[in-house]
Design a protein around this nucleic acid. Structure first.
Ligand code: SF4
Ligand code: SF4
Lengths: 160, 160
DNA sequence: TTGATTCGGACAACATCTATCCGAGTATTA
DNA sequence: TAATACTCGGATAGATGTTGTCCGAATCAA
């Protein structure tokens, strides 16, 4: 029950992309964050499949956010990386064993599944409340308002 | 990011134990639920280590709940199986790369970690609201009030 | 004292996550 | 226009954690 580490990288990349005007290659984002370039590319592909960003191929290509930062929630990123499946999967234990209840009495999911699903929804609701724009402004408050500008400049600067 | 399947079995066992007066062996609980006996034993050991139930060895031994069902929450069971660690682990990406922030500016956890931790707390809070007693009463409402009595009778009946 | 029965932790098989590689495709540019 | 350099994309191995199993040590009833 550990969240994939790629979620953290993906969120950082989304925030960094808000500071860039043009497309940014995956290799550049990986160097900025000090992570594996090839592995980060895999996660960026997942974000692209989910429609959060679209890729531009060719010499000056890279990734660009499709929507405005206010329209992308943390939940969108998490579900793009982890998949939309719920954390709890029911195996219908109540229909097994010597005292199994008949499938006719299982029209509604049982109380255990209901409890787990409710908790899962609460988790997702908390993630949906925060947008990439919120993250960006909070980063500005924590580390100075010019940190985004510095990131933008570094992304535009040519590689040595 | 899938919850361990053992959580489901463990919760069912806790509810079943509220219907039994004396200790119940792991093998009996496994047969009742139609799951692997040796694997269920592993999870019951975890619950025992967490102090939710205590084991009685010997001929008429088994597992007994230590507290009343009202005093055991679903969160207690989940944390006993999954471990108390948070779902999100921070790797301090902001301290890496060419624009790394100095550790002096990292006295407080960053906004991404704060968001993830808040969502994790919401998930745990939802699980803490439901007790084993709540599950038991809900099972009675869903499948008839006598289902608990039938489970208790079956647990007491001798093996063929 | 005997003996059957139980738990407890140590041991493989499987799945998932992590990390990597090279080919397909496109805008640049001479 | 044709060569070219750069990009993404999915297919491919390795590490980690989960699932499932086994047998020995301890315990209580007879
Ligand atoms: S969690 Fe609920 S629905 Fe799933 S097997 Fe258990 S009783 Fe059935
Ligand atoms: S910026 Fe936040 S989530 Fe990212 S590494 Fe730093 S503390 Fe962790």
């Amino acid at each position: 029950m550990r969240l994939s580490g790629g979620v953290e990288s993906a969120l950082h990349c989304c925030v960094a992309l808000t500071a860039a005007d043009g497309p940014v290659p995956a290799a550049r984002l990986a160097e900025l964050h000090g992570v594996s370039a090839t592995y980060l590319a895999k996660h960026l592909q997942a974000l692209s499949r989910a429609g959060l960003m679209h890729s531009v191929q060719g010499k000056a290509g890279g990734y660009v956010l499709t929507r405005s930062p206010e329209e992308i929630t943390v939940l969108d990123v998490v579900e793009a990386i982890e998949g939309p499946r719920s954390t709890f999967v029911c195996t219908e234990i109540r229909q097994r064993g010597p005292l199994a209840v008949s499938p006719d009495d299982c029209t509604v999911s049982c109380v255990i599944a209901r409890t787990m699903t409710a908790a899962d929804r609460a988790w997702r609701a908390a993630l949906r409340e925060v947008s990439i724009a919120d993250l960006r402004s909070a980063v500005g408050e924590d580390h100075g308002v010019d940190v985004l500008a510095r990131i933008g400049d570094w992304l535009r600067s040519p590689l040595p």
